[in-house]
Design a protein around this nucleic acid. Structure first.
Length: 403
DNA sequence: CCTCCACAGGAACTGATGGCGT
DNA sequence: ACGCCATCAGTTCCTGTGGAGG
């Protein structure tokens, strides 16, 4: 007897293993494969630079460049963990410490994150607040010295660090790069990873000179290479023959368009795979890739919108209301919204600042216009559909009546 | 050619928060 | 109990500016 109940049908399909995906964790870029394709050159260089660790001496600090999705982090992590295994039993243990500067909002947070990974677990040993930055720094050095570890600090997206430093503690990063001079036992190696090849200009030259003792640039993947990488993952992630060649080509092409972003390609494939699976499609088709791309874009927008604080949201609504208008007009619209929602309004100065921040995220675009004796303004426009905004904000209780 | 608009955007500061060390 | 330290959102005060209109 055939079961027509939709719920039962879904449950049946789910349990009957009618799945085209067999190992989905392979479809995350951060999944570390046995072999990293097309990165032999870089693997060799990174290994070369870190070789002194095996010889019990301190390697040079290292700076790694490359666009997003070129496998920088993957390569560095792979090499380091291999080295770590080698020296595991020797009396020169390596402590691998990884942080992403983008995830930390302050320099303080970054240092604390280092400390946590070095084994300063409890609040007592390393409080999350209250200490001066140099205080935290000294504690870090103390642990390294006490355990005489060879610490390797990996700072991903180090370009964001330049921002964090500018506010406080300019000297700390400098001290970090020269920490070895203060350490009697143990050592400290810094590895910086950056997407931005021009970020150097924003960093203290003293820091730079010691950080970039060695530099390695990752080249972009070609579309052809991306295709091979995808193929390699498809082999383990999907059931044989469930991904159309056309879909594969499109996926590689879309990711290659930018600068050969393998991460995007793999994400795209994963989302498309999940989409196809949910629709009970036999194969992943070109159309799935296209829709996956669109879906990812929308999801990104929605999460970005929801993560904004109230006044930012109000301003986005104001921009939506007063399409293509100047800061002054947006400010007026915003004041109206504040009245309607009974919120205290903030100054125009702050509004310019927030608008600038939102612009940076890409949700709105601004363009400076000179209107002669009518002064200078910035005119803002939405880059997303108003529907997307309405949908994203509909759960916000304060905003319900102004939408 | 000069004026003067309507802001942009930098700098320095404030007040609150949260937790340190003594 | 007290001063100190870092951080964040926001404020106050400020100088700078391209070109339409006189």
């Amino acid at each position: 007897m055939i079961n027509h109940d939709p719920v039962d049908k879904l449950l049946d399909d789910a349990t009957n293993g009618r799945s085209i995906l067999k190992k989905r964790d392979v479809l995350h870029f951060t999944f570390i494969p046995d072999v990293i394709l097309h990165r032999d050159n870089e693997l060799a260089k990174v290994t070369q630079a870190l070789l002194p660790i095996l010889k019990k001496s301190r390697p040079s600090n290292l700076l790694v460049y490359g666009k997003p999705g070129t496998g920088k982090t993957l390569v560095v992590k792979t090499v380091l963990s291999k080295i770590q295994k080698r020296v595991e039993k020797s009396d020169f243990p390596i402590k691998l410490v990884y942080t992403n500067a983008k995830d930390e909002t302050t320099l303080y947070g970054l240092l604390v994150s280092f400390g946590r990974q070095l084994g300063l677990k409890t609040q007592k040993e390393l409080p999350t607040t209250g200490l001066s930055i140099s205080g935290v720094f000294n504690r870090l050095l103390d642990v390294i010295q006490k355990n005489s570890t060879n610490a390797v600090f990996v700072i991903d997206e180090i370009d964001y660090l330049a921002e964090l430093i500018s506010k406080t503690g300019k000297d700390i990063l400098y001290n970090l790069t020269r920490a070895n001079e203060r350490l009697k036992t143990g050592s400290l190696t810094l590895i910086g990873i950056s997407n931005d090849l021009t970020f150097k200009e924003r960093l203290d030259p003293r820091v730079l000179s010691s950080l970039s003792e060695e530099e390695i640039v990752f080249t972009n993947y070609t579309v052809e290479q991306i295709k091979e990488i995808l193929l390699d993952r498809i082999k383990t992630a999907f059931i044989l023959g469930t991904v159309d060649i056309a879909a594969l080509n499109l996926c590689a092409a879309m990711a290659g368009q930018e600068h050969g972003d393998a991460r995007r390609a793999i994400d795209l494939l994963r989302v498309a795979g999940e989409l196809a699976e949910r629709e009970q499609s036999e194969t992943v088709k070109e159309d799935h890739i296209r829709r996956a791309s669109q879906k990812m874009e929308e999801d990104k927008e929605t999460t970005a919108l929801n993560s904004y604080p109230l006044h930012e949201k109000l301003l986005i609504v104001a921009v939506m209301r007063a399409k293509g208008s100047s800061t002054g007009e947006i400010f007026q619209a915003y004041k109206g919204l504040c009245k309607a929602t009974r919120q205290r309004e903030i100054t125009q100065r702050r509004v310019t600042q927030i608008l600038g921040d939102i612009e940076l995220s890409g949700l709105i675009t601004g363009k400076i216009v000179h209107q002669g004796m009518h002064g200078r303004t910035k005119k803002y426009n939405l880059t997303v559909q108003p529907d997307v905004i309405k949908k994203a904000f509909k759960d916000d209780l304060v905003l319900t009546d102004v939408l």
